[in-house]
Design a protein around this nucleic acid. Sequence first.
DNA 1: CATGAATGAGGGTTCATTCAT
DNA 2: TATGAATGAACCCTCATTCAT
Lengths: 215, 215, 215, 215
Amino acid sequence: MDRAGEAAAGPGRRRRRDGALRRDAVLDAGLAVFSTLGLHGASLDQIAERAGLSKTNLLYYFASKEALYLAVLQRVLTVWLDPLQALDAGSEPADALKAYIRAKMTLSRDAPQASRLFCLEIVQGAPLLRAELAGPLRALVDAKAAVLGSWIAQGRIGPHDPRHLIFSIWAITQHYADFAVQVEAVTGRDLSDPDFFEATVASTQRLVLAGLGLA
Amino acid sequence: MDRAGEAAAGPGRRRRRDGALRRDAVLDAGLAVFSTLGLHGASLDQIAERAGLSKTNLLYYFASKEALYLAVLQRVLTVWLDPLQALDAGSEPADALKAYIRAKMTLSRDAPQASRLFCLEIVQGAPLLRAELAGPLRALVDAKAAVLGSWIAQGRIGPHDPRHLIFSIWAITQHYADFAVQVEAVTGRDLSDPDFFEATVASTQRLVLAGLGLA
Amino acid sequence: MDRAGEAAAGPGRRRRRDGALRRDAVLDAGLAVFSTLGLHGASLDQIAERAGLSKTNLLYYFASKEALYLAVLQRVLTVWLDPLQALDAGSEPADALKAYIRAKMTLSRDAPQASRLFCLEIVQGAPLLRAELAGPLRALVDAKAAVLGSWIAQGRIGPHDPRHLIFSIWAITQHYADFAVQVEAVTGRDLSDPDFFEATVASTQRLVLAGLGLA
Amino acid sequence: MDRAGEAAAGPGRRRRRDGALRRDAVLDAGLAVFSTLGLHGASLDQIAERAGLSKTNLLYYFASKEALYLAVLQRVLTVWLDPLQALDAGSEPADALKAYIRAKMTLSRDAPQASRLFCLEIVQGAPLLRAELAGPLRALVDAKAAVLGSWIAQGRIGPHDPRHLIFSIWAITQHYADFAVQVEAVTGRDLSDPDFFEATVASTQRLVLAGLGLA
DNA sequence: CATGAATGAGGGTTCATTCAT
DNA sequence: TATGAATGAACCCTCATTCAT
């Protein structure tokens, strides 16, 4: 019944849904290609082929290569800042930090391309993202640094500069996505291996918590 | 005598030395441009101009764009692995680790472009460096992991997986070079500020040493 | 009754009238854009936007870009040849020529875009208008040359080749539309200034009439 | 001997001369194509083929299509303003005007493409030439209008506004280049026919001189 | 009548690379 | 060594046109 209903929904609506799907397919393809070859190394032809449409048609959905790149980046950034939002002042510090580390490491496992694209953009000086960094990102970090600061003030965690702590967690967790080839070259494993994933999470949690005098 | 010898060396030798100087100039220019724009975003014209010669002449020194890129990468890699070599089994663990962290952070301050170029290459899957990773780099890490492993076995540092420990130190120290724009957007400072540099070194040392039960 | 009839005419007829209005709007927009940018420099999008409809819809009214261009040209040509028709053998030569010059100069003032589009087409070799030139236009010129010729034969105007005379009048009067930017750059004025318009008409009339020994 | 000398001149010099020749060939081809199809209608491929080189090589000589177009226009403009320079206050008015009309008509015969390209540019609003019009061209016209004005003040020619007189001569003489297709459609002849050329010159001279009371 | 989606051809331009000297 | 000239491949993008509704 439902499927019949969908089939009868009329072309207009189906089309529109197809359009949104194709847009998403393009964003996915863009993420894959951009994160491997960079903005300049990627070609629209490549992305279009991967998304299953023609280059011209791709340009019907996104006005230009740079517009597509930006759209991909925006989508990445949204996902990227999400876990930190959850770091809550009301939680037990150890639990909150452990959860945050796990959440970030999970992202590194499940969305490594997003991590890499973000990394590429930042490493190259964030020509298109600088405003986002100085605006929303900084605001979020300031807010969470305040949370960590209050824990320190209450003596619940050691006196580690909150921003350096955040950077350290970011650095370590993202390292397993961004430097995955290196990790694999050295260890022969990556995060998709459940044992390795758990060992990495545990190791990072232990380092950070002990580093803060919580273990 | 030496100086007279040099002065009288004739065009042949002087030329050769000039040539070596120009080669270095090209490598420097290549590092600067590649680290900002990536392999594909950089143009030989740009690099040549920065190095003060013509594009055609540049191609006399390096057979192709990719050859130049590789040469730049090789030079980077050499510098890159150097500090780890110094991690010596004979030292006191705390001292050795503190020194290593400081050395790496110093590199991030003094050679951020090298760090970024290395990062770019790895993030994109290390298409040209994979062999280096699986070969020399892995061997070096294995060797140093053995050192750390011996310290653990002797109970001189906590039971933290040696490779994860190395990754964590790399991740944190390189973060301040690779994500410098982000660090600056959030904190308003960077490693060239001596106070910030020392605070960052101290913070990282404390986290790692405490994380290993050494503080 | 008529108005009621119109009001009650139903969608069919009203639609048709709307259609004619939109057609005209497209022709107007086409004239404006083509006369500024030429056939190849103009885009259907531009014309459609100016006419207030979508490109696809524009192509419902005109089968192709070239078809639209031709339609615009046709409309221009009709207006263009009109004043010459009025040159009547029965009139006094001086009056007839003065009236013709004024009529042409008025067109240059009121329909400069039409003049320019016609000019563009002719200058480029009239690829789409050659037939019109060799057919109706030549016939008209032949007819009017006969009129002028009869005046010469009667000694009522000087022995100036009729066709050259017509060309001269065309050239001068159209110059103030086609080369308006140049005229304005040199004099700071254009035909929309009533004083300048009258002075230009008078000047041209004087030159031509005196040139024919009529003053 | 001369030819041998040239042949022995060495590659460097021959090359350079070839380069200048090719540049000229490109300018010629550009004039031919631009004057027929306009800036937007012309393609670099077309021009390159006509000039006997590849599109890419053409772009080695001229940085962009617009740069080439401008270079062509500049060359045209130089030739264009030349005859007017010769209009000298010291001459007999009738002789000077007759000579000027002949010179302009000769240009229309020998360089009709230049005339047409100039016309195209002006008709479209002179987007790239406006500065030239308001600067050098206006200055030249002002100077020559002063000459004509002095003749009027001395009663040597009739009281015809000098600028309108100049415009009229321009309009008529250029008409035979710019509207050549129309002239040919109507008369079956063009300026390359010596009889027609002389008749046209004479006719124009008579109209203008008589118009000024000089015949 | 009207529209959103899709397409293919072509255009200008960049750029690494080669050639000839 | 060094350079100016030349080339061909690839790329992004525009645009007239068609399709399907």
